[in-house]
Design a protein around this nucleic acid. Structure first.
Lengths: 150, 150
DNA sequence: GGGTATCGTCAAGTAACTTGACTATACTGG
DNA sequence: CCAGTATAGTCAAGTTACTTGACGATACCC
């Protein structure tokens, strides 16, 4: 019984939708991060970048971020602390709730969001060039339908 | 100038391919991890699960793992240490290289891979039910083409 | 107006890495 | 065949991105 040969004849553990999704998602993020770093927003690649990505430009209650981002409120606290220290956002009291704080974008943060939107459009345009606008739309639709399920 | 209103009228930062890819990739992983946990392989959800996912059932040189997984050799070392401690893999000397070690799956590890392959097929089957085999094939093809480019 | 829930914060712990330093073994050119 | 250099694995320590727990202050509900 040539067990080792049989073993090695097994398919690679890599040929499935899940792996393909991860690969392209990682690649997309690398492209995004590289382009953002080139525009001076290298910090967007780190965890605090995700906070800015979830922020409405008009500002947002800090308490809304944990559920939106899927992390704990203490994690949000720490990330916002860093963004405040770097002058990307500020924390102001919530006029409608004595306990709450509003996280508001400073100019540097607003610029990052504007540049981020541009970069996303550029990447999407490159994708459309490669597979065609129709197939890209079909891809987006399929991703949406599959995500709905669970 | 009603700046705040304009700000809030901006599109959500969430409506782009990159976000859709991340969302479905995360969801796929959650489905996979849940199914694996139900089969007694809860540890597959953690970092050391990725090592087993990259291992050929016949065994593999430890030195090949860092580049395959995209992490440092020291990180691989630590993860393999954990797997050895849990009786999932063993480290044996490489007969062809006095410096090297072969990381070889023990029965528990082989079972995890077998179960993992089953679970992947189940998830893929559910995907096919939802969008049809043809659209799923088109999705896979699109993901492959886009990943090629870098 | 008292009980309970929520908001933000401080503190400490953990997972999953990283970089740096080191030893043992292998390969390579003269 | 042997000095020089590269590679495999290991040990130690540091960093990042979280986590859970505890707590005071404010808000909400009956």
């Amino acid at each position: 019984m040539v067990k080792t040969l049989d073993d090695n004849a097994m398919p690679p553990l890599i040929d499935h939708v899940g792996w393909r999704l991860w690969r392209l998602a990682r690649q997309w993020k690398t492209e995004f991060d590289t382009a953002m770093a080139a525009r001076g927003h290298g910090w967007m690649a780190e965890a605090r970048g995700a906070v800015v990505g979830h922020l409405r430009p008009g500002g947002m209650s800090q308490s809304a971020l944990p559920s939106a981002m899927g992390i704990s409120k203490q994690a949000v606290q720490q990330l916002v602390d860093e963004l405040v220290a770097e002058g990307i956002v500020e924390r102001i009291p919530d006029p409608t709730d004595g306990r709450g704080r509003i996280v508001r974008l400073l100019p540097r943060g607003k610029q990052a969001i504007a540049d981020g939107n541009e970069v996303k459009l550029e990447i999407e345009a490159r994708y459309a060039d490669r597979i065609g606008a129709g197939r890209l739309a079909a891809l987006n639709a399929a991703l949406d339908v599959l995500a709905e399920g669970t």
